[in-house]
C-alpha cells in the first residue's frame, strides 16, 4: 500500500471546537474554531493565550484546566487515533536509530514496525542515507525531518503541528515548511505558530486567537504553498504583524 493510501480513501475530516476553557477558575479563552477538512489552518496569538491548549484539548491531552463545550468531527466519528502530533521539540529518542525512531509508534502500540515503509518515508524527507544514525549525529533540520517522517508513519488524516519549525534557522525553516506542505497535502492540518510569515505562506485559513475570540483572518487569494516574495503573501504577513503588535503591545 502506498503511503497515505489508507486515509485518502476517505476525505480528511474537519474539526470544530466550540467552548470555554478555564484555568484556576479564570477564563483562558472562549473559542469557536472550525478546521476545514483537508486544509491547513494556522493559529496565531500571543504567548499564553491558549493556542497549544486548543491543540491539547482536541488531542485529549492533559491541559491543567477545565473545558466546557464540544469538540466534534465533520463526519461525526470519534477523533481517537485519527490525529498525529508533532511538537516544537523533535522528541527523538536518543538511544534509537533514525529508522527506529520513525517506527516508534508501532512499538508503543505493541505491533511489529514496518521498516520498509519507514525507509520509504525517510527517503521522502531526504534522509535515506541516515537511517542507521543516532539523532545526536543529525543537525536540527535533519532531526525535524525525522520527526516529520515519524508523523507521516502514523498515517493519520489529521495532523497537529505545535510550532515545529520555530527553533530552526531561517533557511532550514523555509525548507521544512515546503517539505511539510508537500507531504501533508490533503490532510487536515492545524499549525500553531508565532510567525506571521509562516502563516501567510502555508495557511488555507488563518485564525488569530485572543482570550475573547477566535478571529478568521483573510488569506491571500493564491493557493498555499505561496512564494516567499509573493506580494500578496508579503502584504498579508505585514498586516498580520501590524495587527498582532497593535493588539498585544509589549
Amino acid at each position: 500500500m502506498a503511503d497515505g493510501a489508507g486515509w485518502r480513501m476517505s476525505t480528511s475530516a474537519g474539526i470544530t471546537i466550540c467552548g470555554q476553557h478555564h484555568l484556576n477558575d479564570q477564563l483562558l479563552f472562549d473559542a469557536n474554531l472550525c478546521l476545514p477538512g483537508g486544509k491547513w489552518t494556522c493559529l496565531l496569538g500571543r504567548s499564553g493565550v491558549g493556542k497549544s491548549t486548543i491543540l491539547r484539548l482536541i488531542l485529549g491531552l492533559e491541559t491543567g484546566g477545565t473545558f466546557t463545550g464540544r469538540i466534534t468531527a465533520s463526519d461525526d466519528a470519534p477523533l481517537d487515533n485519527r490525529i498525529s502530533y508533532m511538537a516544537q521539540s523533535d522528541l527523538l529518542l536518543p538511544w534509537l536509530s533514525v529508522l527506529d525512531n520513525i517506527c516508534i509508534g508501532a512499538r508503543l502500540r505493541g505491533t511489529a514496525p514496518d521498516i520498509a515503509r519507514a525507509q520509504k518515508l525517510l527517503a521522502r524527507v531526504g534522509l535515506c542515507a541516515h537511517g542507521h544514525q543516532k539523532p545526536n549525529a543529525l543537525s536540527g533540520g535533519m532531526r525535524q525531518r525525522t520527526a516529520l517522517a515519524r508523523t507521516l508513519y502514523e498515517n493519520r488524516p489529521i495532523v497537529f503541528l505545535d510550532e515545529p519549525f520555530s527553533a530552526l534557522d531561517a533557511g532550514t525553516r523555509a525548507d521544512m515548511q515546503e517539505l511539510a506542505a508537500e507531504v501533508l497535502h490533503g490532510r487536515t492540518v492545524l499549525l500553531v505558530t508565532h510567525d506571521p510569515a509562516e502563516a501567510a505562506r502555508l495557511a488555507d485559513q488563518i485564525v488569530v486567537m485572543s482570550a475573547s475570540e477566535t478571529r478568521i483572518w483573510p488569506t491571500p487569494n493564491s493557493p498555499a504553498l505561496r512564494a516567499i516574495n509573493d506580494p500578496e503573501t508579503l502584504d498579508c504577513q505585514a498586516r498580520l504583524l501590524a495587527y498582532l503588535r497593535r493588539e498585544h503591545p509589549t
Binding site: A87, S89, L91, G105, L108
Partner: peptide
Amino acid sequence: GYGDLSVSMGA
C-alpha cells in the same frame, strides 16, 4: 513531551 507524543500515538 514524550508522554504527550505517546498518548497521541495510542501507546
